[in-house]
């Protein structure tokens, strides 16, 4: 494993009157898949949104490759790619145009644009539909567009927020393979999911969040402990068994 890519330190965040995050801390490294686990409403998405600078921390701090999200948010955004469960694409643009738009906004220069976009299209096997308008694409194809636009600027940190929740078995499998490939390329991959079975198969280390607090962290084996799987461990941790 390489060095720390994302450092979350005593992070707290309120949304309205809801105390969503209550002082959570963890570190995710380059070259690993780090699982951010917990039930729906635990605070996983809010954590990711703070890391990628969409939300500001109320207390604590978040650093991405040495850049504080509060002080240098643009530098953080240059180094982060995010794939969410909600696959929003511009329907009247083609898949290629969607990717190129985000590449340009992410600072890819005109000279590099075509080669970068072409490389991502090849890597995700999108040639057959790259010229089609996004409105005519399937959910799996749209998810590939969403991944492509998140990685086209080659960010060292990739975050996946419930990326397989709307996809069929084949498309989900491709996403998982892509995460493994990214890890092998030395990226820091943060995988947020409530599907503990997926996390168990993919993650090197995990943190389990419950009601805005970290209830367990460590390698997947450490957190599983003597239990049959992560799901049993989670149920033990939250006292639901």
């Amino acid at each position: 494993m390489s060095g720390v890519a994302v450092k979350v330190d005593r992070l707290a965040k309120n949304l309205g009157k809801n105390e969503v995050l209550r002082g959570i801390s963890f570190e995710a490294n380059s070259g690993e898949i780090f699982g951010l686990l917990g039930p729906n409403g635990a605070g996983k998405t809010t954590t990711l949104r703070v890391i990628c600078t969409l939300l500001q921390p109320d207390a604590g701090s978040v650093g991405v490759l040495g850049f504080d999200t509060r002080v240098e948010p643009q530098e953080v955004r240059r180094r982060v790619g995010v794939v969410t469960a909600e696959i929003g694409v511009y329907p009247r643009l083609s898949a290629r145009e969607n990717i190129a738009y985000f590449a340009e906004l992410s600072g890819v220069t005109d000279g590099e644009l075509n080669s970068r976009v072409g490389a991502v299209i090849d890597r995700l096997d999108m040639r057959s539909f790259a010229g089609q308008r996004a409105e005519s694409l399937s959910s799996g194809q749209k998810q590939k567009v969403a991944i492509a636009r998140a990685i086209v600027h080659d960010p060292p940190v990739l975050m996946f927020d419930e990326p397989t929740s709307n996809l069929d078995v084949l498309a989900s499998r491709e996403i998982r393979e892509f995460m493994i490939e990214s890890k092998q390329r030395g990226k820091c991959v943060i995988f947020s999911t409530h599907v503990l079975h997926d996390a168990e198969r993919l993650c090197d280390r995990v943190v389990i969040i419950h009601r805005g607090k970290v209830v367990a962290s460590g390698t997947t084996a450490d957190v599983r402990g003597p239990n049959r799987d992560l799901e049993d461990s989670f149920l033990d941790l939250v006292g639901a068994r």
Binding site: C52, T53, T84, G88, V89, Y90, L105, R149
Partner: peptide, 18 residues
Amino acid sequence: ERKTLESLLLTPAPRTQV
């Protein structure tokens, strides 16, 4: 409505310019 806003705001492009 299309859920593209989050991805747009995630880019390093200054929001004033967007």
